[in-house]
Design a protein around this nucleic acid. Structure first.
Lengths: 224, 224
DNA sequence: TGATATATCTCGAGT
DNA sequence: ACTCGAGGTATATCA
């Protein structure tokens, strides 16, 4: 990894055109050939960048000033004109062992399948990841009256999730063994627009409290 | 901006829990208090980060090793345990003049609203960002016969955009003051699948030549 | 402050 | 190579 702090101008042409006027910035050139240009704010997003796989060609003089051209297979190009270099260092980092995460949607689905009655009294699980031609339905279950219910689970419920559930319902309702199938849209947070669309399509919305649900699953809470 | 290359472990707790085992990484602490941790690959995304506004508290010894704790208002925390510091430098960057972009959707929408007749002879604009319960329609206009036309604009036109326009059309067509409303799907590039779906739903596709459109708006091109 | 739409989204999984 | 879905999405804009 090479770190450069320099006054520079930058031009990107590809999916759009972008230009950065002359200023002092951090340039990070990584081992995979990728390049990112950062200002002194915003942790996450570079001002400009080229993602791997890409190729870096450097035409610089002794002082480090000159032109960097980063190109990729799609014909995009990032051109960095280094005008004055304030810092330039190289570092060996090695490959990263990677990140361990906890608390994602899969876990939510497991919890809800365990506590199927949180959708309503007398509900029973048919199966998780019920397969269809257009993908698996998160949860398929029956309500107290024996009617089939398809559940779509999201962490954040937006219009896209309602559309997805709608497609499943349309398909499932063609199956005479299952029909009529109604839908429940379950998410930790449901956007107003998604709620409007769901209501319009006769889909029930349920907001999930992950902590309560996890609490219900807490072994220390099982006193019997 | 402070740049540190160090062997470290990192823990994030907040929207989820994440842990990075001990390895050598780049740590960038910016002037706005934000912190990002990068491995030696991927230009864009940090392994871990804390976005501003946030607060950095450092408990380090002479060698720079020790604990960094970055917290924000929402109660999220990023803990970095520096085990061995290989590089540590500070740089004054100043505020960045910022990025000039060209070719984004907002600009397209402006241009098309200005040149509403590019959709067809005798078209007139009703309004941009016409509000509905499920989001704003990019452009609402009337054709030469006085019929209402809803236009959805995308830089790259895929199925999602057609679905979006379909939802708007369904809603708009329930309004007797507007109905019947037809749709135009306008994009710089329209994917074949999107074209098929649009055709199937009676939605007209129009490919926009951004350069020509911009040229039309070029004052030097107005010779009359 | 909250809601919404965009993004050179990125990134990974599956086909 | 392409599509689809998720992301600690981030970020800007607008009510």
């Amino acid at each position: 990894m090479r770190l450069i702090v320099a006054r520079c101008t930058v031009d990107y042409t590809g999916r759009l055109s972008a230009h950065l006027p002359s200023a002092t910035r951090l340039i990070v050139a990584k081992a995979d050939g990728s390049v990112a240009i950062h200002a002194d704010d915003r942790a996450y997003k570079p001002l400009n960048w080229m993602s791997p796989p890409c190729h870096l060609r450097i035409e610089a003089d002794e002082a480090g000033t000159g032109l960097w051209s980063v190109t990729n297979r799609a014909g995009e190009e990032l051109r960095i004109l280094l005008e004055e270099v304030f810092h330039d260092s190289e570092h060996e980092l090695g490959t990263d062992p990677g990140l361990v995460k906890d608390g994602v949607e899969a876990h939510l689905q497991e919890l809800l399948a365990l506590h199927i009655s949180s959708f309503g009294e007398g509900f029973s699980l048919i199966r998780r990841e019920f397969p269809t031609a257009i993908g698996p339905v998160d949860i398929l279950c029956r309500d107290a009256q024996g009617a089939t219910v398809a559940v779509e689970i999201k962490r954040r419920g937006d219009i896209e999730g309602v559309e997805q559930l709608t497609r499943y319902l349309e398909l499932l309702n063609r199956d005479p063994l299952l029909a009529p199938v109604r839908g429940i849209f379950a998410a930790q947070e449901i956007k107003p627009q998604a709620r409007v669309l769901a209501q319009d399509r006769g889909i029930e919305c349920q907001v999930i409290d992950y902590d309560v649900l996890r609490g219900t699953d807490d072994p220390t809470a099982r006193l019997f």
